[in-house]
Design a protein around this nucleic acid. Sequence first.
DNA 1: TGACACCAATCTGTGCAGGCATAAAAATAA
DNA 2: TTATTTTTATGCCTGCACAGATTGGTGTCA
Lengths: 244, 244
Amino acid sequence: MSTSLHAHVVEHLGSRIVGGQIPRGSILLAAELEEKLQVSRSVIREAIRVLAQSGLVTSTKRVGIRVLGAESWNPYDTQVIRWRLVSEQKGTQLRSLTELRISVEPMAAELAAEVAPENMRKELMMISAQMSHYGRQGDLHKFLELDIRFHSLVLAASGNEMFANLATPIGAILRGRTELGLMPERPHEEALLWHQSVSDAISNSDSAGARKNMESIMRRTHNEICSLWEGQPRVFVDPPKEPR
Amino acid sequence: MSTSLHAHVVEHLGSRIVGGQIPRGSILLAAELEEKLQVSRSVIREAIRVLAQSGLVTSTKRVGIRVLGAESWNPYDTQVIRWRLVSEQKGTQLRSLTELRISVEPMAAELAAEVAPENMRKELMMISAQMSHYGRQGDLHKFLELDIRFHSLVLAASGNEMFANLATPIGAILRGRTELGLMPERPHEEALLWHQSVSDAISNSDSAGARKNMESIMRRTHNEICSLWEGQPRVFVDPPKEPR
DNA sequence: TGACACCAATCTGTGCAGGCATAAAAATAA
DNA sequence: TTATTTTTATGCCTGCACAGATTGGTGTCA
């Protein structure tokens, strides 16, 4: 076993809960899991703690480990996102993430134009130049990696750690989009120019320009993939009753 | 003890790490923690698992439990946010959250106008009416609770669970703003009208209007509290090197 | 002498097994 | 209905064995 044992248990249970094989409301007993997964109590307990933190289960005395419904899951948990992306809720997850990035990336570009450190502005210029090159050449694989790097960099250059932290799931979206063949066989010239303009604007501290061009990119992105979740139902959670 | 033991340990260690009393790079030993906190190994281990998931520590054999720096912390973890809000990084945390809500709430309002269920539209109308009433009356406490409910509702009514999940930290921002006396002694008439207009627009499925008025609210909000983080340094994290 | 590869000691987290305490649901009595 | 007892699964503790990483020493060769 290379990775730790309890991580395997987390993976096993987490993917099954998110995937729907273990339906909401199920009651798991630590003793049963011990036997079924052939691990000791301590491993089970640590795994349950982790799952509880992600909002997948709660464990209460005398009743057991209750599996919670999707509305309790922490939607920013990277594992939850990963599990959802390979489940039937894939469409819903893609929609949420895409709406989030449409909201965030223009602001990130605007901020980056104001506060990005010099080396990041330089790297952005390099990346967008390479994107144009490989894009016109039709090298989709290389283009994808550059695209991911580009958007991650803009998010990081905003100096907002919450923005920066979205890089990984957004990268997953971009990968998924090309894997599903939702990318044109050769990037649109327009898109190449917009990326170029974003990095130009950031380099010139032109925050309005950075935002405007990033908004253009987001608009096209949305149009390209919104067909994926056509008809997927929306989830409405009751807002938290004022605690404390 | 009403709450569980391991939760106390998580709280103890987490708040100290985020608060800076336990500096990055420190090495904690499970045995020492056992003795210092007077709890057993199992409790320590479960707590460490939870802290590790939040990115506060990693534990490796032969070396111990290493305390990680702020760039590794999960910025969407509710506990991390809570701890940061009572630490010296309060300004940075407020800025990140505010920038995020400025990005997200206009989009949430726009979506809500398109997809919100009828009961949520109704409640929004009620809330905004009450906000006007108590606001003009100068009842800041009542106004605050309504304001929190209003924004939480819009986020929930967007049908995007990632948006909806921001309600709690955003509520914390709003509470903090009034506690710090950053609210005018009586809400501006303008702000009351904007809230009213947002709920009107959502009720009438006028997505453009909902967005526009929410943007106005966000602009004013930003101006009212951006003084809090004047001069706070920004954190630039390296974007994740493409995995897989 | 000095550089380097290799091996053994040691330290610390990880996992296992079993024990008792306790809280909360369920059943029973009042 | 209300109060009390019983039941039962989790919470917490402890002793032990193991795995894997660091460290230091040993030996070889240049």
